[in-house]
Amino acid sequence: MSKIRSGRAKSATTAGALLAALLGGALAVAPSATAADYSPCTYGAVLHNKVTNPTSYKYVPYVGNSPNCWLDWGMSNTAVRALQKNLNSCYGYRLATDGDFGDLTESALKSVQRKVGVRADGDYGPNTRNAMVWANYSMETGARISCN
């Protein structure tokens, strides 16, 4: 089943292709402030807070040295897997943790976005990340301890 999406990834690709076609690839253009501030999440990172809880960690979407990134429909990587794992662990979904951001992940994310009071657009970004609760896992066993 093929769907047409208007997500950021498609928009950025389309805009880039159009710009390259118009300019013949001869000019470099600085990215917008939004694009410069938030890149696509590329991997899931283990965050360990040695001060407040030295025996647990969280697994969150990340890019470079920052959790300020975005995910949307059609993306496939370990950052999506981190999001799926958290949707399952803290919100009771039973998504396949396959790292593919498809219809089921989007639907679950929209439901969580409504629950936590952010715009329910199915796109994951800093506002959604900050509003969601995240699972804490034991450093020793890897078992989920809590969600907060």
Results as ranks from 00 to 15, higher is better:
residue 27 L to C: 09
residue 127 N to I: 10
residue 71 L to E: 03
residue 97 T to S: 12
residue 35 A to K: 11
residue 35 A to N: 12
residue 77 N to C: 00
residue 34 T to I: 05
residue 91 Y to L: 04
residue 54 P to E: 09
residue 132 M to N: 01
residue 70 W to T: 00
residue 107 S to R: 15
residue 97 T to K: 13
residue 114 R to E: 13
residue 117 G to R: 04
residue 40 P to C: 06
residue 83 L to A: 06
residue 71 L to N: 01
residue 110 K to Q: 07
residue 109 L to P: 02
residue 117 G to D: 07
residue 102 G to N: 05
residue 122 G to M: 13
residue 47 L to I: 07
residue 58 K to Y: 06
residue 29 V to R: 15
residue 39 S to F: 02
residue 50 K to G: 08
residue 54 P to H: 05
residue 70 W to E: 01
residue 83 L to D: 02
residue 91 Y to I: 02
residue 75 M to E: 14
residue 70 W to S: 02
residue 120 A to D: 03
residue 38 Y to D: 13
residue 103 D to Q: 13
residue 105 T to N: 09
residue 131 A to D: 04
residue 133 V to R: 14
residue 121 D to A: 05
residue 120 A to P: 06
residue 96 A to S: 13
residue 56 S to T: 15
residue 30 A to R: 15
residue 98 D to E: 04
residue 113 Q to Y: 09
residue 124 Y to I: 09
residue 41 C to N: 01
residue 104 L to Q: 12
residue 82 A to M: 07
residue 57 Y to V: 00
residue 117 G to L: 03
residue 82 A to G: 08
residue 77 N to R: 03
residue 67 P to S: 09
residue 84 Q to T: 10
residue 116 V to A: 07
residue 96 A to V: 08
residue 91 Y to G: 05
residue 122 G to Q: 12
residue 89 S to D: 15
residue 92 G to K: 10
residue 116 V to M: 07
residue 68 N to Y: 15
residue 64 G to M: 07
residue 56 S to P: 02
residue 35 A to C: 04
residue 85 K to T: 15
residue 32 S to R: 09
residue 101 F to P: 06
residue 109 L to Q: 04
residue 29 V to M: 14
residue 46 V to C: 07
residue 90 C to L: 11
residue 122 G to A: 12
residue 42 T to P: 01
residue 68 N to K: 14
residue 67 P to R: 03
residue 132 M to I: 03
residue 101 F to A: 10
residue 40 P to W: 06
residue 132 M to F: 01
residue 82 A to C: 06
residue 112 V to L: 01
residue 67 P to C: 00
residue 128 T to W: 00
residue 69 C to R: 00
residue 122 G to P: 12
residue 111 S to G: 10
residue 92 G to A: 11
residue 59 Y to I: 12
residue 36 A to P: 01
residue 52 T to Q: 07
residue 78 T to N: 10
residue 116 V to D: 05
residue 57 Y to Q: 00
residue 103 D to M: 11
residue 27 L to E: 13
residue 31 P to C: 05
residue 87 L to S: 00
residue 29 V to P: 06
residue 107 S to K: 15
residue 73 W to F: 14
residue 86 N to A: 11
residue 77 N to I: 01
residue 109 L to T: 02
residue 89 S to A: 15
residue 49 N to C: 02
residue 56 S to L: 02
residue 129 R to T: 03
residue 52 T to K: 08
residue 95 L to W: 06
residue 28 A to R: 14
residue 101 F to N: 08
residue 99 G to D: 10
residue 56 S to F: 03
residue 53 N to F: 00
residue 62 Y to E: 01
residue 63 V to Y: 12
residue 45 A to K: 12
residue 74 G to T: 06
residue 115 K to P: 00
residue 77 N to K: 04
residue 89 S to L: 04
residue 37 D to A: 15
residue 71 L to T: 05
residue 38 Y to V: 14
residue 25 G to T: 13
residue 44 G to D: 07
